[in-house]
Design a binder for these strands. Structure first.
Lengths: 330, 330
DNA sequence: CTGTTAGCGCTTTCAG
DNA sequence: CTGAAAGCGCTAACAG
């Protein structure tokens, strides 16, 4: 930078300003500076900038798993919103481990992040204080329930699951099973919602639940449908914690010669393929893209001085009725 | 850091060393330092560290799309390898735009990256010189063909496609169509491979190709099978640029009442679900996880002073025969 | 609109 | 094994 400044006979700060705050430098000078910058192939040093300005331009995003389908939708929203800003994202994964979560947040904090986005936090003790003292805005993508603090975006997964199961009950299913993969805050809440609706109907039964500590996948859906049928041979419907499980259950049902929707299948998330399978999968639409988009948007607004909202942002859900469940009869 | 040092009556450099190079500090002193660091809640400033040491601990990863299924597998490998190192990853997407690619590489370069990983580079002019002068190792995940430079990991997509289509021909299919989404270097090469095999068999026909500038998806697979059948009513097999397209084609075929594998369907990548659909999808296994893992591994080794390999690393592929294609008759 | 001064928090280099 | 001096490249704050 000094080289550029010297070669132009101006001071470094002018070059710095021409690059970052064009409005504060006269037009002619600015053009000369920018031209020379190009010519000399000068590349600003972001570490130095971060050190001097305590502002790295990096938003840290932490999620239990980066490579899950659930995170993929959120990530699309994040990338879309961040694209038109000059911020960069640094993703990290906690692999469902609260200790690791803590470590990663500390790591973010070491970098003067411009903002932090936490998805599905597990809240090991002490973590909230850490975040309270964070020198940057923090937004969480969460399950919305009573005890919220800070800025949050999300939906109420418990309500969503309850709504879905009530719908299945209205379709006439009675022995409704639940299958799921690795637990996190959100899937726990969905299970709660399922139990609630089943208890409400007087149909709760532990043998109707099967889960495995593994990422959800089509494969797992196949396996868990099998397991559920051996636990509960009179099973007449499966509520799946995710659409890929539902797809697996669908394939397995077809393989076993079970007629769908006599055996009902309901997914969760409304991933892209759910609408296009044969038959199409009944599911709960969750606005994952919007979650990512809104969360980053919120972060950017607050960084730019807007007043943070006081209430959690509820993005809502919708039960989408398709071919893997019977139509409501009455 | 100064606070920690003062409170212990040592110099800051000792604290710095205790943290980074434990071997260079006496054990008792090191322990006292680490204890005090914990106690005072000291968090190192990575920007300052990066500035002073010209080494940020960040590996930049650039891909055409971060949220594609193809990248997901690579990302899993990346995350797995990086997990046990103290490096962090910063992902960026070029959205298939060579200009953007260039911008993002510049952005990485501004950050004293420890390494750069480029997946499916498009090579706008000038980009190779930029990389040649990069002050850090650069690894590319690429389609392997003749003109390679620098460290590369990948497979030969053209060969893979050719092998797959030859297999389909051996199964007795003749009117084999191709469907695909947004083009990038790798999918172009697969198309080449397809054309090669079809020409070789004297069966090439432009009406057998359908693609759309959109991310591959189940939905797109449905649409493109329809389009292909209107372009070529006597179609007897589809080679799909990706497994999600294949899944879409499978669903669409079922919807239309077409018998599979009388209509053959072949995917690409061997995504997780391909083996578990009904029928299971014939596809080409591509070691995406290994690509990410090996690429980062290579980067880490070179950073640690190992000699870079001179030849590209070919991870190979495998045609996996399953239920959506007929068995080879002769 | 432009420049001067000072220093961000850490590490490198060179001495002890 | 520990320390002192110097500076990484940039920007904030203030002055002109």
């Amino acid at each position: 930078m000094t080289d550029v400044a010297d070669s132009l006979g101006v001071s470094p700060i002018t070059v710095s300003r021409a690059l970052r705050e064009p409005a504060k430098v006269s037009e002619t000078l600015r053009e000369r500076v920018l031209a020379r910058v190009d010519e000399m192939g000068y590349v600003p040093d972001l570490a130095a900038r971060a050190l001097a300005s305590r502002h790295s331009g990096v938003i840290g995003v932490l999620a239990p798993a980066l490579t899950s389908h659930a995170h993929l939708g959120i990530m699309r929203g994040i990338e879309e919103r961040v694209r038109t800003s000059d911020l960069r994202i640094q993703y990290a994964s906690s692999r469902y481990d609260p200790e690791e979560e803590c470590r990663q947040i500390r790591l973010f904090l070491s970098q003067h992040p411009t903002g932090i986005l936490l998805s599905g936090l597990q809240e090991r003790d002490g973590i909230m204080e850490l975040l309270q003292r964070a020198p940057c805005p923090v937004v969480q993508i969460v399950d919305l329930h009573l005890t919220q603090s800070g800025m949050t975006v999300g939906i109420n997964h418990c309500d969503a699951a309850t709504a879905a199961v009530r719908h299945l009950l209205a379709c006439g299913y009675r022995r409704i099973g639940l299958i799921g993969g690795t637990r996190d805050v959100r899937s726990e809440r969905r299970q709660e919602g399922y139990c609630l609706a089943m208890r409400e109907a007087g149909l709760a039964d532990l043998s109707l639940v099967a889960s495995e500590d593994a990422p959800t996948s089509v494969q797992l859906g196949c396996q868990l449908l099998q397991r559920l049928r051996s636990q509960a041979p009179d099973l007449d419907c499966v509520f799946c914690q995710n659409d890929d499980l539902a797809l697996g259950a669908l394939f397995e049902a077809q393989r076993l010669g079970l007629a769908v929707p006599d055996l009902g299948i309901c997914g969760y998330n409304d991933l892209g393929f759910a609408r296009y399978s044969h038959p199409a999968i009944t599911t709960v639409r969750v606005p994952r893209f919007e979650m990512g988009y809104r969360a980053i948007d919120l972060l950017i607004r607050v960084v730019n001085g807007e007043r943070p909202p006081t209430a959690p942002i509820d993005l809502g859900f919708e039960v989408v009725e398709r071919g893997t469940t019977r139509r409501i009869s009455g």
